[in-house]
Amino acid sequence: MLFAAAATVAAANGGGASAGSGAPAPAEPRTPGLRSPDAGFARDMAVHHQQAVEMSFIVRDRTQDEAVRTLAYDIANTQANQRGMLLGWLDLWGLPKVVADEPPMAWMRAASGGDDPAGHDSHDGHGGRAADPASGALMPGMATKEELERLGAASGRDAEVLFLQLMTDHHKGGVAMAEGCAQQCGTPVEKALAQGMVDAQRSELTLMADMLKQRGAAPRG
């Protein structure tokens, strides 16, 4: 009876092999390390997303244009939710949300073997600006402190155009980062989220280009 009970428990727990096949049980997913692309992307993209949410809330109060306000709401809602997922994974992995001695984008530099976060001299390789810590832009596409102040001081069409231009740069940088995770991260659910970011933000880039054109403006070079 004791042997039978033990056999039943072992079978319920997988017993180290699938029933009747002799195949080994699936290995447990490996927890990402502190310096892994998975953890680095989660930390950096959480910061990147936070600025997009901030810009979206700023423009919401600087214009009455429904199209811009709707886009801003969608970006804020989507990226706040994604940010929560990224931070939640770091908690699940038992990893810190901030690493004091880790430069922004170190996980992409390590993978590419280059000195620039995206492996280019002055641009992120997708039309966005490279990181510029001196100006307050820590990662590709992020707005500087001065640009955020300009957005907060603008109104009407000026605020709409500046928001669309800043968010275009922001999305281009975000796409480059998300493509890096889709290629380098080892956690399947995080890779899927990163690819989803790429697809959604590329679609919004097309939309924002059209919205800028409607306002007699264009994305910044």
Results as ranks from 00 to 15, higher is better:
Ser155Phe: 10
Thr8Lys: 14
Glu102Cys: 02
Ser155Glu: 15
Glu190Pro: 06
Ala46Gly: 10
Gly33Pro: 04
Leu95Asp: 07
Ala110Val: 10
Thr206Ala: 14
His123Ser: 15
Thr168Trp: 11
Gly174Leu: 01
Leu2Ile: 15
Trp93Cys: 04
Gly186Trp: 10
Ala111Leu: 04
Ala178Ser: 11
Ser155Ile: 06
Pro32Lys: 00
Val99Ala: 14
Glu204Tyr: 08
Ala143Thr: 03
Leu151His: 02
Arg83Thr: 12
Ser112Pro: 02
Ala134Lys: 12
Val59Lys: 00
Pro219Arg: 11
Val161Glu: 00
Gly174Ser: 02
Leu138Met: 13
Leu212Cys: 09
Ala182Gln: 01
Gly125Cys: 07
Gly16His: 01
Gln201Phe: 07
His48Pro: 08
Ala12His: 07
Glu147His: 03
Gly128Val: 07
Leu193Gln: 13
Leu90Ile: 10
Ala100His: 07
Arg150Lys: 08
Leu212Pro: 11
Val53Ser: 02
Val198Pro: 02
Met142Thr: 05
Gln165Phe: 00
Glu66Asp: 14
Met211Cys: 06
Pro29Phe: 05
Gly128Met: 08
Met108Ala: 12
Ala80Thr: 11
Ala218Gly: 05
Ser18Tyr: 09
Arg35Ala: 15
Glu146Asp: 15
Ala192Gly: 08
Gly196Asp: 04
Ala218Glu: 14
Ala46Asp: 07
Ile58Tyr: 01
Met1Ala: 14
Asp38Ile: 03
Leu71Arg: 03
Glu149Ala: 15
Arg129Asn: 13
Leu34Ile: 08
Pro140Thr: 06
Glu102Lys: 01
Glu190Arg: 15
Ala106Asp: 09
Ala6Leu: 15
Cys185Asp: 02
Ala42Cys: 13
Asp121Gln: 12
Ser18Lys: 12
Pro32Leu: 00
Glu190Met: 15
Pro29His: 01
Ser56Met: 00
Ser56Lys: 03
Met211Asn: 01
Gly173Trp: 09
Asp210Thr: 10
Thr31Tyr: 09
Gln201Asn: 09
Ala6Val: 13
Gly173Gln: 10
Gly40Pro: 04
Gly216Pro: 08
Ala23Arg: 14
Leu162Pro: 06
Gln79Glu: 03
Gln64Trp: 10
Cys185Pro: 01
Ser21Tyr: 08
Pro24His: 12
Leu148Val: 11
Ala52Trp: 04
Val161Cys: 04
Ser203Lys: 15
Gln51Met: 01
Val175Glu: 06
Ala178Asp: 04
Gly196Met: 05
His49Gln: 00
Lys213Pro: 08
Met139Ile: 04
Gly173Val: 08
Gln82Cys: 05
Thr63Val: 01
Arg109Lys: 12
Glu204Pro: 12
Glu149Pro: 04
Met108Ile: 03
Asp38Gly: 03
Lys97Pro: 00
Arg69Asp: 12
Arg69Trp: 07
Ala217Ile: 09
Ala17Val: 15
Met1His: 13
Trp89Cys: 07
Met45Trp: 05
Gly180Cys: 06
Ala154Ile: 04
Ala118Val: 11
Gly173Tyr: 10
Gly186Phe: 12
Arg129Glu: 12
Gly186Met: 11
Thr8Cys: 13
Ala6Tyr: 08
Glu160Thr: 01
Gly40Asn: 02
His123Met: 14
His170Gly: 00
Val47Lys: 08
Ala200Ile: 00
His126Leu: 15
Ala192Pro: 01
His120Asn: 13
Arg109Trp: 02
Phe57Arg: 07
Gly40Gln: 02
Cys181Ala: 11
Asp74Gly: 13
Val47Gln: 13
Arg150Ala: 06
Gly152Asn: 05
Thr187Ser: 08
